[in-house]
Design a protein around this nucleic acid. Structure first.
Lengths: 244, 244
DNA sequence: CGCACCGTTGAAAATGGTCAACTAGGGTGG
DNA sequence: CCACCCTAGTTGACCATTTTCAACGGTGCG
């Protein structure tokens, strides 16, 4: 199950069997989380580094008025908090959006591992830099694009990211989110997300079946969204793979 | 002139005279940039790490339609690209917003320095983590707050950040930006920035004199904006200082 | 069966964008 | 020194997008 993180990291550089064993050995616990449950809470000083194995989670803050804003979607293979824990307190929370399984690494274990194993260290560093690049793109997406392009852009990103860890096939992937959770990340109301999704469906850009999205013509959706995949820094290109 | 970065880093931890000398010695060049000139361009692979000494710069991307979105304001003492250059290509640009002076560190010089000097390494790491925290807060600001609160929130941040490097006194600081540049960072039109500024002035929350902003009652502005300074992770509190 | 959650719809209202014009100030060339 | 021009800030009127409120239908589950 931890294999998913290998797929993630190997977008950047191939890992040896020893690298993988070392990572496997660094895992201290594996826990399950229910939807809406916090994996790491604001104000806490977590003891370990969390790796998402199954399900989706979100990085979020709660505003004065009680509204929630999601700053990142975390999918299987994503590390939640490699660096952040170096600061005194978490300035945001990480919460499960669907049912999740989460592995925890000991903080020091991982730190020494990154120090000793240069390839692994670089791969983990690359992963956090990509997360930051995604954050920047989200800011641009929110600040500069209208609702329909914005949603389309998010879906393009989801396609490429799920593809990279073998969670999509033939342009079809699972989005285990409610429209409200999507709304919280896009800075729009749930109602408008609903209408915008309908609009994208009407334009034949996407197909939505239950919790699954299918994108027939990726080129067309990317053109509509103004999507440029450079920011994902997926060095080694990857073809679709089936879920295992 | 490089002293400004000491003020910045000492928000996190005090530096010794040797630390400061080491940093000073790592500087290879100091350059001037005119407004609208790029300091680092998208697509480039910069050779050094840039430190802003004077003036303001912005991290930005250009959208499909030619619009520009600013993802961060950089003020004196800020490092532009400590980590980003580890990736293959810059996925965004850094441009001067006012007249700037910029110091450049040799990439390797700084890397070995961070490796050898633990205190300096930690301070620089802290600085980049804070930059990331600011990015997250901007995302929330953009996604979750209406125009007036959003602008007010940005001004609160600017006050605290300029204060921290001795660039503000008695709630008054310079904002060397046009309303259009503000608009590019807030995801709103220049016209609406103008009207929103007038609104804040009418509410007596801010005073705007030329390129200078004065905030009489910080508490009130923060309350209006829903501003919580935690995300700036200013460990060591600092009082106002005069420009030198 | 009934409750809770989610997606969906309609209509009214608010927020912010666009367009166009006008002003004020600073610099430049005649 | 003045005319000119460019930029930045400002204003008004109109329009587009998005939010809000309220209601309804389906579905899964205790």
């Amino acid at each position: 199950m931890i294999e998913v993180v290998f797929a993630k990291l190997e977008q950047f550089t191939p890992l040896t069997a020893e690298d993988k064993d070392a990572l496997r050995a660094a895992v201290t616990t594996i826990e399950a989380f229910a939807p809406r449950q916090d994996i790491v809470s604001e104000g806490a000083r977590p003891d370990g580094v969390h790796l998402l194995l199954e399900g989706w989670a979100g990085r979020y803050k709660t505003l004065e008025d009680g509204a929630r804003h999601t700053m990142a979607f975390l999918i299987p293979g994503d590390l939640c908090d490699v660096q952040i824990t170096l600061l005194d307190v978490m300035d945001h929370s990480i919460g499960a959006l669907s049912s999740c399984r989460v592995a925890t690494f000991g903080r020091e274990t991982l730190a020494t591992l990154m120090g000793e194993n240069e390839r692994l260290g670089a791969a983990l560093m690359w992963a956090t830099l990509v997360d930051e690049a995604i954050l920047r793109e989200w800011l641009v997406n929110l600040g500069g694009r209208k609702a329909d392009r914005r949603l389309a852009h998010l879906l393009c990103e989801m396609l490429l990211r799920t593809q990279a860890v073998g969670q999509s096939a033939n342009g079809k992937f699972e989005v285990p989110l409610t429209q409200e959770q999507l709304a919280d990340s896009l800075g729009m109301s749930p109602v408008h997300v609903n209408r915008t999704l309908q609009d994208l469906r009407a334009r034949q850009l996407i197909r939505w079946e239950g919790k699954h999205v299918r994108i027939e013509d990726v080129e067309q959706l990317m053109a509509f969204a103004g999507f440029d995949p450079t920011y994902l820094h997926q060095v080694r290109s990857r073809t679709d793979r089936c879920d295992d």
